[in-house]
Amino acid sequence: GKNVHVSTCLLLNLNRLGTAIKEDFGKIALLYGYSIIAQIDTGIISENNSDIVINVMGCSKKQIDIVTDSAYEMKSASTLNGKYPREILWDNYSLIVNDNEYKSDRWGNILEGEDRLPLVCPDGKDYIEFKIMKYKGFFTNKKLNRDIDDEEVFIESSVGLCNPTRVKLQNGVGIFRLYTFSYKGFVKVKLGRKWYSVWNDYSFNFA
């Protein structure tokens, strides 16, 4: 609803436990008139790192005065190229198996790697081992291997059993096993973080 704010800028809370609430911009503009509307999206924040994007709507740059002791850059909305600010902040996870690295977005589109190549359990083993690699938002070329890149990654598989189903990264790297129980065919493997709606969706062919 419309709340009173002692501020020249109106902050809208469109986030609940990390999951975005969809709201039409036209409706927001009609409700709040010519108020300055700002949305703040955050990534990892620590003593030495602050990943923040402030999306300002309904005003021009000359109405914005930022005082900060940190580096920042102002961009127009067009520089996002259709991506939502969260897609730049929220990190992504690739999977490495059999020395091949795979990158996939949250819709299951393969960005890198051939997902139709058959995966086979090594001789004498009843599981396939996967290695997780953490990347800066939307798979930039920057791998994240800082001390603060130690969050838990949740794992879901449509077939078999993952051991474990939560992997705590160490400097942006984690390892888990997927027990196939002799299943052959296509399998969905999804990686994500608790409270976040963005997951990396992978499809593999078990042979």
Rank of each mutant, 00 (worst) to 15 (best):
E23W: 11
D24F: 06
F25L: 01
F25K: 03
I28C: 01
L30G: 05
L30Q: 13
G33R: 00
S35E: 12
S35A: 15
Q39R: 14
I40Y: 04
D41R: 15
D41V: 09
T42E: 11
I45C: 14
S46W: 07
S46K: 03
E47Q: 15
E47G: 15
N48Q: 14
N49H: 13
N49C: 10
I52K: 05
V53Q: 06
N55V: 00
N55P: 00
V56F: 02
V56E: 00
V56L: 00
M57I: 11
M57D: 00
S60A: 02
S60T: 12
K61H: 04
K62G: 02
K62R: 10
Q63C: 10
I64R: 08
I64E: 01
I64F: 01
D65G: 13
D65V: 00
I66N: 08
V67R: 07
V67K: 14
V67C: 09
T68R: 10
T68L: 05
D69L: 12
S70L: 13
S70C: 11
Y72V: 02
E73W: 07
M74Q: 13
K75F: 04
S76G: 15
S76N: 14
N81Y: 04
N81P: 05
K83F: 05
Y84V: 04
R86P: 01
E87P: 10
E87H: 10
E87S: 03
I88W: 13
I88Q: 10
L89V: 02
W90E: 09
D91L: 00
Y93L: 12
S94E: 03
S94M: 08
V97L: 07
V97P: 03
N98T: 08
N98A: 14
D99R: 14
N100Y: 06
N100L: 11
E101I: 12
E101W: 09
E101G: 08
E101M: 09
Y102I: 01
D105Y: 05
W107E: 09
W107Q: 06
N109C: 05
N109R: 11
I110G: 06
I110Y: 09
E112G: 02
E112T: 03
E112I: 01
E114W: 05
E114C: 12
E114F: 03
D115N: 15
D115P: 15
D115Y: 03
R116M: 09
L117A: 10
P118I: 03
L119V: 03
L119C: 09
L119E: 02
V120T: 09
V120Q: 11
C121G: 04
P122T: 04
P122M: 08
K125E: 06
D126N: 15
Y127K: 04
Y127P: 01
Y127A: 03
Y127D: 00
I128W: 09
I128G: 01
E129P: 02
E129L: 06
K131V: 14
I132S: 12
I132P: 10
M133C: 13
K134D: 07
Y135S: 06
K136I: 00
G137D: 09
G137Y: 10
F138L: 07
N141F: 00
N141L: 02
K142I: 13
N145Y: 07
I148G: 00
I148S: 12
D150L: 09
V153I: 15
F154L: 15
I155H: 07
I155V: 15
S157L: 08
S157G: 11
S157D: 05
